[in-house]
Design a protein around this nucleic acid. Structure first.
Lengths: 360, 360
DNA sequence: CTGAAAGCGCTAACAC
DNA sequence: GTGTTAGCGCTTTCAG
């Protein structure tokens, strides 16, 4: 299938270019390594604490002192040791974020907007990738909690008892995202997947469809959407929807394969609900390759990635979620909670929209 | 264009569900908060250092002691404070990674595989998003260096003098990725964009094309590919390639717009070289909507996102880069350097491949 | 407005 | 094998 043209995969090995030698060797005044607060203080002729104040609470220091200290900082190239600062102050200025993956743009954009907003407020994000079966969540959590983050963001609302317990013990703000429950561990920014599934069903039913299929990735939230979808169909006495479950995260390939089996089967569906836009994309690719017209011959419903769908397959209808808004709101909520405030609202339902475009 | 169906965007405000109260209140023996090494030591009836050894160097401790200490750790729910550990040992077990964005899967997959590999080795990744104009790189770097990472990964080889200087002063391993130079700051895992551009030109020329266009995002590496591409064309006396530059990161929308202008212009090109697969996708969307056959009427060359292209537009030819391999090799190189080893090779050129699929 | 003393929680050395 | 003694570099009191 794929032929590879002139592949210049040569492996250039450089000469043993000297690596920056690790210890000593430099004309630095200190024994071990980097410049410390005391070094700066000495150079500025003040006490260490004054330097600390210039950095963290300049309003407590005279402008003159500030200038002198800033000068000394610049001359020495001092970079405050946040490990030491965090240890002493019990505030790490670190927020941990646990997501299944960033390889799909689903969470990547949320993480990115979260990171941006938190950076503005002087926080950094420690990223934890739990993987889709989320088996690593417990181990990961320990590694992360060890950094003493000031807050932690989790994807979803299903966590092991161990996770819950450790979270509570850590006594830090927790923001759960991408799902909905009236009783989060602490705070939540998300929406109801069950309801999203129901609305998709309503929408497709209103279009007059009666033969359905679901192509769904094997993850908790996708399962919820599927559940809502099927429940709503059942309420209309439709119980023969075909269901394809593929490993999470869904890919173009698995979406396409599912579609192939679907379309080869007897009584192919009029409408397919996919648990992600990537899967929907795969279904569309297969449908188009068979010359089917969309949505005339087959209605395809995606979930989540609007921009993408909008340009490549205008006929794709999708459920819109503002992924960056999730990150932004999660950041605001987190900052509020770190600040000791109740956290905007305890539960923020960001909602979703069924977006339909002019058919192709 | 986009109509929104029943949008249940209601904002559920929960009651002021009690947040985990911050200080005190618990029956814990300690004054401030979490369990410390000493707490565990007391409970186990050993000295603190023994607990430390059980955790970090169990081979120095008797099995009996290990069991007792492990038991105490479990009972107390002790989570080692890595801030304190890092401060004392001067090893943070943190590796920083600076990338422009993770919203495009370009770097997301690289970051993900890097994170996975480093996690196995007991390191965590501190993610820094520099943004595309990379204006934030300097500020970000200070925030990151303050965490005293054991190593740092940078995207690209173009860095400000300030960045270079701070990096050298930090005296930690540096791995530059996604570009090529025989003289990296310390170590490099990437490939030559200039050469990639040249090969694309060769490939398209070999196909018999003579009228070219470039749709390129406004970033350093894309510019290098463009440069290589144009240089190779010039060597064959083709100097009339049309050039469209769009803001980085490229999107489907900007790709599509560029294509529209391209195809509306006089003497539309036979072949377009896009600086990313997303842009190529946009170009293809526009071309298809005009009923053009691909690659018959228009050859489209993408860059980087193979899986994606493979399924949605079989006719798209692309330059393949194994993004996960970049992350994996960067991780290995990083670990080697942290370990004091020379770092596999100083320069690893992972190469690239021009991948052609059966035309649609 | 600035400083001195004490300690955050852990580990590097050196004893025993 | 295990313990003791000192810090790591910063910030928190509390004085002045």
């Amino acid at each position: 299938m794929a032929r590879s043209a002139p592949a210049p995969s040569r492996r250039k090995t450089a000469d043993g270019k000297s690596a920056p030698e690790r210890p000593g060797g430099h004309a630095s005044s200190r024994s071990s390594g980097s410049v410390t607060l005391s070094d700066v203080a000495k150079l500025a002729g003040v006490s260490p604490i004054t330097v600390s104040r210039v950095l963290n609470r300049p309003e407590l220091v005279t402008q003159d002192t500030i200038d002198i200290v800033r000068e000394a900082i610049a001359r020495t190239g001092y970079v405050p040791n946040l490990l030491a600062g965090g240890l002493a102050s019990r505030r790490s200025r670190l927020v941990a974020a646990l997501v299944p993956t960033i390889a799909s743009s689903m969470f990547a954009e949320t993480v990115e907007s979260l990171t941006d907003r938190l950076a503005e407020a002087g926080y950094q994000v420690l990223l934890g990738l739990s993987g889709y079966p989320a088996v690593r969540e417990d181990d990961l959590l320990d590694a992360i909690l060890g950094r003493r983050p000031d807050g932690i963001l989790l994807t979803g609302i299903k966590h092991s008892p161990a996770t819950r317990q450790r979270l509570l013990a850590a006594r830090i703000p927790v923001v759960e995202i991408w799902d909905y429950t009236p009783t989060p561990i602490d705070t939540l920014v998300g929406f109801s997947h069950d309801e999203a599934g129901r609305e998709v069903a309503d929408y497709l039913l209103a279009k007059g469809h009666r033969r359905f299929a679901v192509v769904s990735a094997d993850d908790d939230r996708a399962a919820l959407r599927q559940k809502g979808f099927l429940a709503e169909l059942a309420a209309r006495d439709i119980t023969d929807a075909r269901i394809f479950t593929v490993p999470a995260p869904g890919t173009l390939g698995t979406g396409r394969e599912s579609a192939a089996r679907l379309l080869d089967g007897e009584a192919p569906p009029e409408a397919v609900f996919c648990s992600s836009d990537i899967l929907a994309q795969g279904v569309l690719a297969e449908a188009l390759s068979r010359g089917l017209s969309i949505p005339g011959d087959l209605a395809v419903m995606g979930f989540g990635d609007l921009d993408f769908a909008a340009h490549t397959f205008p006929a794709l209808t999708t459920v819109r979620i503002d992924r960056r808004a999730v990150g932004r709101l999660a950041a605001e909520t987190m900052l509020a909670r770190i600040d000791g405030r109740p956290g905007i609202e305890t539960v923020i339902d960001i909602g979703f929209q069924v977006i339909e475009r002019a058919s192709a």
